[in-house]
């Protein structure tokens, strides 16, 4: 019954810092998710933690997160996601919207 917790690690080629200490975006509605992206000294790496009631999609999460990380090249950040059955498209959108909160 417990929630699934997934952990991923990324090593961006040209890591850049998040310009603010932390950003939060999204609401854990049905088919939706929230994310916190925050600065953390990880020697240039980035880590992502996903908490979700869904099982069996570890590989899909990794692909979606990897594409986002390749694009934004954030380093020394911790990404924390609370998910409630969001589809990959929604996940991608919310991650980009979180960055727009600070950069847009």
């Amino acid at each position: 019954m417990a929630l699934t917790q997934l952990k991923y690690e990324f090593s961006p080629a040209t890591p850049r810092a998040l310009p603010v200490p932390a950003v939060h975006f999204g609401v854990v509605g049905s088919g939706d998710m929230e994310v916190i992206i925050e600065n953390k000294d990880l020697g240039g790496k980035a880590v992502a933690t996903v908490v979700t009631p869904v099982t069996g999609f570890d590989h899909v999460w990794e692909m979606v997160l990897r594409r986002f990380m390749d694009e934004c090249q954030l380093g020394n950040v911790a990404i924390s996601i609370n998910d409630n059955n969001a589809t990959p498209v929604v996940v991608s959108l919310r991650l980009r919207q979180a960055l727009l909160e600070i950069e847009g």
């Binding site: 019954m1 417990a2 929630l3 939060h24 908490v51 979700t52 009631p53 924390s80 609370n82 998910d83």
Partner: peptide
Amino acid sequence: TERFISPHLPELGEAVEF
């Protein structure tokens, strides 16, 4: 960011919010 989530929902396998 303070992450005061519900202690009950994870026991039930229900999604949590920060």
